[in-house]
Design a binder for these strands. Structure first.
Lengths: 107, 107
DNA sequence: ATAAAATTTAACTAAAAGGTTAAATGAGGC
DNA sequence: GCCTCATTTAACCTTTTAGTTAAATTTTAT
């Protein structure tokens, strides 16, 4: 079993693992924007940006809103929450509790 | 300039973007473990696990403690905090504030 | 109907990722 | 010194990623 939710999480982290993509996402987070506007600050080609946008869209981090000849991109915060949840599972409180239980029974 | 801290963040997210690696990291988070112990639940080879551990180490998410012939791996929570901070920058409060400012001046 | 603008898709390339098996390393025990 | 155990490194393969340029698509304006 290759749980679906796991794959979604992987896609979110993969999307966030590229500097350019994080930059683009930050811009979108500040304010909805079109592909052209988003591409402007970067020295890479428009098709490259378009691909990054598709990756972000595939991770459900952004929503594409077709408006005439432009596409407006909008942040979707939900996957960010999932990512945070995963990180929380890894760090801190709950693992310390589980570790204590583990030590109690096995050690 | 390809800021160093950005590259560190990229490495953390990349490390977290693989399901097996998250599994391994979860195991380490629960309790320090050796490469052999960590490999046990997975069907991939030991060298594959060894590589995953090197990626996690490269992202500074784990620390390797050589103990005789075994290597013990220990979670380092600090990069998780950085990752959370980046996600927080992307979502929620501060962006809404910045957006308001932006709208005020430009719109 | 054409043209122009915004964007994507296609086709291609180079490098990185994730896996394999086989060989090398490092440490402890006899 | 030699054997064994735990682990990594080397060499290799295949797939994915991030970029390119050129062509196609879609929509609005003339």
């Amino acid at each position: 079993m290759v749980k679906l939710s796991e794959e979604r999480v992987s896609r979110v982290f993969k999307a966030l693992s590229d500097t350019t993509r994080r930059g683009i996402l930050m811009d979108i987070a500040r304010k909805d924007a079109t592909a052209g506007e988003l591409a402007e600050p970067y020295e890479i080609s428009l098709p490259a940006v378009s691909k990054h946008l598709k990756v972000l869209e595939g991770a459900d981090l952004v929503t594409r809103i077709r408006e005439g000849k432009t596409h407006r991109f909008h942040l979707n915060e939900e996957p960010l929450k999932s990512a945070t949840k995963v990180i929380e599972e890894l760090s801190g409180y709950w693992n310390r509790r589980l570790k204590e239980l583990d030590d109690y029974f096995k050690g």
